[in-house]
């Protein structure tokens, strides 16, 4: 009889320092060829640091690069600090992938606008890689990224690569600059003034802290986006990942099984304000 709380064993393949308190872990299942369980951008994993506990993390890698699961983790609580102590070859537990996913195929042929804030970039990164690896399936791709400070920018090397691509428009800003920072300073929505989008044929994907999402959605609506063309993720304190523990319930929905991906139109329909 299958125990839905029993994790699979996986090993840390590599650890990348992103910022002073954020690391990306590459995790590979510890059985057979280590291939990932099939997933799509937006899905999440329950990852165990045994002894510290278990927590949900979005998969920050793309299924088009299917050799391992990436999770990008800020050290804030007991599970995440347990993970931050890990080295390559260490054992973790994995359950999942869980949740719904971004509408990767439904938006084929449309223009895409990504708006990410801080540690909200990881879920979008999965989808960005997915779309870049299937570049011909999508129209114009614009990526906007805002971080608190230059040090807090995650995936620094990839940001430079995106900035260098001719088939992608990448713009970024930081809330607070530094001596060595020559880029823009200001919240992510200041970037809206620098882009030209066609809201009717564009789908926007946005992830980040709640207050940022609020202002981004306001900005997108002002630009003329329809609520069902604005896609975000509902981040809730979550325990079990399978719709049982009750923590992530919002009205009649569970962020873990009905989400975490919702359109703004879905969110407006919820009987509880998220």
């Amino acid at each position: 009889m299958e125990n839905i709380y029993m994790p699979l064993k996986a090993r840390v393949v590599s650890v990348t320092n992103e910022t002073p308190d954020v690391k990306t872990f590459k995790l590979r299942l510890d059985n057979g060829d280590g291939a990932c369980i099939p997933f799509l951008p937006g899905n999440f994993l329950e990852v165990s640091s045994f002894g510290a506990g278990e927590a949900p993390f979005c998969i920050s890698s793309s299924p088009t690069r299917n050799d391992a699961f990436d999770i990008t983790v800020r050290s804030v609580g007991s599970v995440t600090s347990g993970l931050h102590k890990m080295k390559p070859q260490d054992i973790v537990g994995i359950r999942g992938p869980f949740g719904n996913h971004f509408p990767c195929s439904a938006v084929q042929g449309r223009d895409i606008l990504f708006v990410g804030g801080g540690i909200g970039l990881p879920p979008l990164r999965s989808l960005i890689h997915y779309m870049l690896d299937n570049r011909d399936d999508y129209g114009d791709i614009t990526i906007l990224y805002g971080a608190r400070t230059p040090d807090d920018r995650v995936y620094k090397r990839e940001l430079d690569q995106w900035a260098g691509r001719k088939d992608v428009l990448f713009l970024e800003t930081v809330d607070v600059g530094s001596k060595s920072w020559s880029g823009r300073v200001g919240v992510v929505t200041i970037l809206f003034d620098e882009i030209f989008v066609r809201p009717k044929i564009t789908t926007a994907f946005t992830c980040g802290p709640p207050v940022m999402i609020k202002f981004v959605i306001q900005g997108l609506l002002k630009m003329g986006f329809r609520p069902d063309n604005i896609v975000t993720t509902l981040e809730r304190y979550m325990k079990c990942g399978v719709g049982k523990c009750g923590h992530c319930a919002v009205g009649e929905k569970y962020a873990c099984t009905d989400g975490p991906v919702f359109t703004f139109a879905d969110i407006q329909k919820l009987s509880e304000k998220p």
Binding site: Y5, S48, G51, G53, E54, K239, C240, K244, C245, G246
Partner: peptide
């Protein structure tokens, strides 16, 4: 009522 918390003890 069926809500629960999950924790490790080692």
């Amino acid at each position: 009522c069926s809500c629960f918390n999950v924790l490790d003890r080692e």
